[in-house]
Design a protein around this nucleic acid. Structure first.
Lengths: 153, 153
DNA sequence: CAACATTAAATGTACGTACATATATTTGCA
DNA sequence: TGCAAATATATGTACGTACATTTAATGTTG
């Protein structure tokens, strides 16, 4: 559906403004679908992403600094997201013996099992998440346009 | 810059995953730039958008329901955003005489003046906000791809 | 008219983001 | 050694989003 119809605004001042609004709206649309997909498992998207990073490290621990480095959004507060995962016993947090400033964060068996159940449902495949309607060629074009959009000066 | 380099992840499992991450990342990138542009004026983006809606109604009042209807994000909490605008005296809130359940929200002279100052700086033009690097043709294509992306089934 | 449903907005709670500051530990160097 | 700087994380505050519940006013219907 065209963005004009989605948000019931028949006309934009220019194509730039339309693209800005379309981009924000579409990103929000995608985020809502992702959040809804995780909800039955009691997870948010940032929590899911951290669990995946921890599984990538498993059985080695990760530190908060490593999580921040791997996360898309650098300003998000990894400490507090880990807090919630600890409460749900999906993750453990222990002082790092080698460097007592740091903490060792590990995914638990429960966490691994939950991650497995979430992924078994193919929650992130394009059909569920949109984008299924774009061809490989269109996806490539789309990625190029996004990259170009961010170039300033 | 390519998304692979932006987030230092050299490879994606497939083009879909790359597009999803690229879309989220780019929308976040844009939102950061917008927030930074409004910050010197003590405004957030939702506050700015509500001020614009109120100016569109001026000198008539708007209700909370009208604001929600016009806002991109329907689940955001217009009541509380208006709270902050009232505190800053950019907006007034009075009980609607015709329907005492509703409230009449009006932009003040201070609010109009602030909006004028913000816009005088061209804060939302494509050069400041990115997208300046895209041609008219590319913008059209980009909008079409976003619209198509959201079609499911 | 009274009882109940509907409507409009406000409030509460959980979570995340953005940014500043605090606390504890380690490192480096005079 | 001792002390300042750097490092790793936690905490605090303001704001917004998502969603449920509450409060007050208005409609509706028997």
């Amino acid at each position: 559906m065209r963005i004009e119809d989605e948000i019931k605004q028949p006309v934009f001042r220019n194509q730039y403004e339309k693209a800005i609004i379309n981009l924000s709206y579409t990103a929000g649309w995608l985020q809502m679908r992702q959040a809804a997909a995780f909800k039955p498992y009691g997870l948010t998207l940032p929590q899911f992403n951290i669990l995946r990073i921890l599984r990538g490290q498993h059985p080695c621990p990760a530190t908060v600094a490593l999580l921040i480095d791997r996360m898309l959004d650098k300003t998000s507060n990894a400490s507090r997201i880990v807090d919630r995962l600890v409460e749900k016993q999906l993750v453990t947090r222990t002082v790092c013996p080698a460097n007592r400033r740091a903490v060792d964060i590990r995914i638990t068996e429960t966490g691994l099992a939950l991650l497995g159940r979430v992924e078994a449902n193919n929650l992130l495949d394009p059909t569920h998440m949109g984008l299924g309607s774009l061809s490989a060629e269109e996806l490539g074009l789309f990625n190029d346009l996004l990259d170009k959009l961010r170039t300033v000066e």
